[in-house]
Write a protein that binds this DNA or RNA. Structure first.
Length: 820
DNA sequence: GGAAGTGCGGTACC
DNA sequence: ACGGGTACCGCACTTCC
């Protein structure tokens, strides 16, 4: 038979001592389809140089005879082929060794201790990855597939009778078809429990939300008018109902928020306790948890997505939200918020409140469902670009995504994949000395008029490409062929890289060009998909240097990482010097940027300067105009007279502000201080002097002294980064967290702690002794907010105008500032 | 018992 | 383990007189 098909999930099974792939997906009518395909497994044995043909022949014979009988499996070498390959750029002769079961590739590699063999590789790549590389049946692309339908058959031990699928097809052939739209069938879920620790409490309710499906299942019998609430007898029945509904709906994706870390483990632990089976897999198998600290749960044939993980790696760096809580993320992306509901212990909840609880539980699934829809184009394109299944792509960090991309693109360069680092390598890489990072120019404090800013386009990546840097192109500290090389001095020594183009920089160049191409495509034809594709390439391209310096990477290279950073410093410093020599006053620079006074020159003259600088840059390196600014302000550090790095504010010609590093953008300062500072920066940058800013400050100070400021403006929010018991220094936010715990308010690691500083009778001078939670009665501490929040936020700004605001902010009696 | 120095802790920049 | 070096700054803690 023939059908359309889009692969969603990849799995495998053994039959008669052989591996088969099981690919789960849909056809274009929405029917669930499983494909069964054979798949050859292989590993590589790289041969030493100058091995005679006859020795190779003998070796092949010996290897062909390898048979294993371990772990109740019989696995044997099926065939061995001699190939001309490359490994880390070197031409090599290698044996491609096929085995009947991929699970034993590692054991076979262990048996290859022949003297003719130099290295063994390719035994540590996941089955799905290998299958996709070999067969090119790639995730989330549409295919026209042809095969034999299995129906009540006995083939493969009658597997088609077990699989919960509309069609099971033994694959014969396939070809890519034109891309049609695809929207996954999604089901979101969320649980409510009476105890946060996994398995220690009861699951009170579970909500499920699909396209036209909304349910809250609970055993907490309460009169309610909510139609979506369904009652069951007890927690055990709740769990059964949960899997019943999932199987009935049969979604492509089961999505939760923090569900790898909470919902799924909780459900599993309660199911274990009650001995309830959760047959959610396509073959009736149970969800399987894996990984230690960073746990995740996999369900066969049903893609379990923990949206938090995807958002964290792909979006967090560009987000405004204070936290990555479902509430904040939904607010930012959906303009929607969670139902405001304070969780209490179930025993305390009365009937009316129970109704709100149901609503709250449902709402969480609705938000999760809507967020998945929102992020779907990005997940889809990531999966297509990286060629890894959704389950992996939705969880992996950027380094892992880069590595997957590399593995899927090695073939073009005829490269044998490098192995994962061994445990010993990991330990030694982790304790290595730090590589020297980027250069930051100390600014000269002041208010500047007409500022131009340049920055290097994708600096690290373009250095890798232009200087041909990688593990394989590194040729040591004193190579013979210095002429044909790029070199740079680092703290660790002078490192040389051949100019002979290496596969790694070439691959990155191609990636970089695709990034350009898809960015242009998006500009020309802006829509969700082109945007997502452009974004996927952008993120991948920006993560290459991070990957090279990541200790878990196959292509990790400390020399490369340190050389890249040395070039980063060199190019920025050289450019600063050149701009200075042309007579400009350079104000500031950080890593890849340079800000300088335009010095009466016109924009077009500045653009000429840019062109000139670009003409002298090597390879694909490029400096671009970040912008022209009407004014910019740089201040001193709090403790001294030096210019503060990573802290500045500029205003563009259309009065848009670019504020970096100031308290305004820091969440651990109270809103009042942030707003006052923001307003003052705005006034000064707009007007070019401090007059109205000063008037404004005086009004605010008066307001504070008259206790006219609302408490919510004074809340200080700080994250609790580790378990309460591990803190050596008991700082205010730790005290606040302890208070919360006393009041049985859940305190979670990573959660935001909110408190304010109140007037107090105690003589203690410690801030922490004045900490109060928001619902604790008290009055805000005027002295603290004036001298420890407002003053530090504005002092340095007015100092630029030689104004000492501490005189304006009276009431600073106890504080002594040694500098005065 | 207070001043000065040290380091913990959180957050931001790129 | 899933990016990591540079930087700022408040606050508690330590040390010293």
């Amino acid at each position: 038979m023939k059908t359309s098909f889009i692969p969603l999930d990849y799995d495998s099974f053994d039959f008669e001592g052989r591996n088969y792939s099981l690919i789960i997906g849909r056809d274009d009518k929405g029917k669930k389809v499983c494909l069964i395909d054979s798949c050859e497994n292989h590993l590589w044995a790289i041969l030493k140089e100058k091995i005679s043909e006859s020795s190779i022949k003998k070796l092949i014979e010996k290897i062909s005879k390898i048979e294993l009988n371990e772990k109740g499996r019989k696995t044997r070498v099926e065939k061995v082929e001699l190939k001309e390959k490359r490994f880390l750029g070197e031409k090599v002769k290698a044996l491609k060794i096929y085995a009947t079961n991929y699970k034993d590739l590692h054991s076979i590699a262990d048996r290859l201790d022949f003297k003719e063999i130099k290295k063994r590789r390719g035994y540590d790549i996941g089955f799905a990855t290998k299958y996709i590389i070999e067969k090119k049946l790639e995730p989330l692309k549409w295919y026209e597939v042809q095969g034999e339908m299995l129906n009540m058959s006995s083939e493969f031990g009658g597997i088609d009778n077990i699989l919960k699928s509309d069609f099971v097809i033994k694959l014969n052939s396939f070809k890519e078809s034109e891309i049609k739209d695809y929207l996954p069938k999604t089901l979101a879920y969320d649980i409510e429990t009476d105890e946060i620790k996994i398995g220690e409490g009861e699951i009170l309710m579970i909500s499920l939300v699909g396209n036209d499906f909304q349910k809250v299942i609970t055993w907490k019998k309460t009169p309610t008018k909510k139609k979506y609430v369904e009652f069951v007898k007890n927690e055990k029945e709740l769990l059964k109902k949960f899997s019943e509904y999932i199987n009935q709906i049969s979604p492509d994706i089961l999505v939760g928020y923090f569900s790898d870390g909470f919902d799924m483990p909780y459900i599993k632990s309660r199911a274990d306790k009650f001995r309830v089976k959760l047959p959610l897999g396509i073959d009736g198998s149970q969800p399987k948890a894996s990984g230690g600290v960073n746990q995740s749960t996999r369900i066969k044939g049903l893609v379990h997505v923990d949206l938090l993980k995807f958002i964290r790696t792909t979006y967090a760096q560009y987000m405004q939200s204070e936290t990555l809580s479902l509430n904040d993320v939904a607010k930012e992306f959906l303009g929607d918020t969670k139902k405001n509901f304070k969780i209490e212990h179930s025993s305390k909840i009365d009937h009316k409140k129970m109704d709100d609880y149901f609503e709250y539980n449902l709402q969480d699934s609705i938000l999760t469902y809507n967020l998945l829809e929102k992020f779907w184009p990005d997940m889809l394109e990531f999966s297509r670009v990286i060629k890894e299944p959704l389950y992996e792509v939705s969880r992996n960090g950027l380094s892992k995504q880069v590595e997957s991309y590399i593995l899927h693109n090695l073939e073009k360069y005829n490269e044998i994949p490098e192995k994962r680092p061994t445990r010993e390598e990991l330990t030694s890489r982790r304790v290595r000395e730090k590589v020297e990072g980027a250069f930051v120019l100390e600014p000269k404090p002041g208010l500047y008029e007409n500022v131009a800013m340049f920055d290097f386009t994708s600096m690290h990546t373009s250095i890798i490409i232009s200087m041909n840097i990688s593990k394989a192109t590194f040729i040591g500290e004193n190579p013979k062929d210095k002429k044909n090389s790029n070199s740079i001095k680092t703290r660790m020594g002078e490192f040389y890289f051949t100019k002979e183009p290496g596969f790694f920089p070439l691959m990155i160049k191609e990636l970089f060009e695709k990034r350009r191409k898809f960015k242009a495509e998006y500009k020309k034809n802006p829509n969700k998909i082109t945007k997502a594709r452009s974004n996927a390439f952008k993120l991948l391209s920006a993560s290459i240097h991070g990957y090279i310096g990541f200790f878990g990477a196959r292509y990790f290279s400390l020399e490369s990482s340190s050389a890249i950073l040395a070039f980063v410093r060199k190019f920025n410093q050289d450019t600063i010097e050149t701009i200075k020599k042309k007579g400009f006053n350079v104000i500031y620079g950080d890593t890849d940027s340079i800000a300088f006074e335009m010095n009466g020159k016109t924009k077009s003259q500045i653009k000429d300067l840019l062109k000139d600088l670009n003409n002298n840059l090597p390879g694909i390196m490029e400096l671009e105009l970040e912008g022209f600014f009407k004014r910019g302000i740089w201040v001193t550090t709090r403790s001294g007279t030096a210019g503060a790095k990573k802290k500045y504010a500029m205003i563009s010609e259309d009065e848009e502000l670019k504020i970096r590093g100031f308290e305004t953008v820091r969440r651990d300062w109270c809103n009042l201080a942030r707003e006052v500072q923001d307003k003052i920066l705005r006034l000064i940058l707009k007007e070019g002097n401090e007059k109205s800013a000063l008037e404004y400050l005086k009004r605010i100070v008066k307001k504070i002294k008259n206790r006219e400021v609302k408490l919510e403006e004074l809340i200080i929010k700080t994250q609790l980064k580790k378990p309460l018991s591990e803190y050596k220094a008991i700082s205010p936010h730790v005290v606040a967290a302890k208070k919360m715990r006393e009041q049985e308010i859940p305190v979670t690691q990573g959660g935001l702690i909110e408190y304010y500083i109140a007037e107090s009778e105690s003589k203690s001078k410690l801030v922490r002794d004045k900490v109060k939670l928001l619902d604790e009665k008290g009055e805000y501490n005027i002295d603290y907010y004036l001298n420890k929040q407002i003053l530090p936020a504005v002092e340095n700004i007015f100092q630029i105008f030689k104004i000492d605001v501490s005189e304006i902010i009276e009431g600073k009696k106890q504080t002594t500032l040694g500098d005065f």
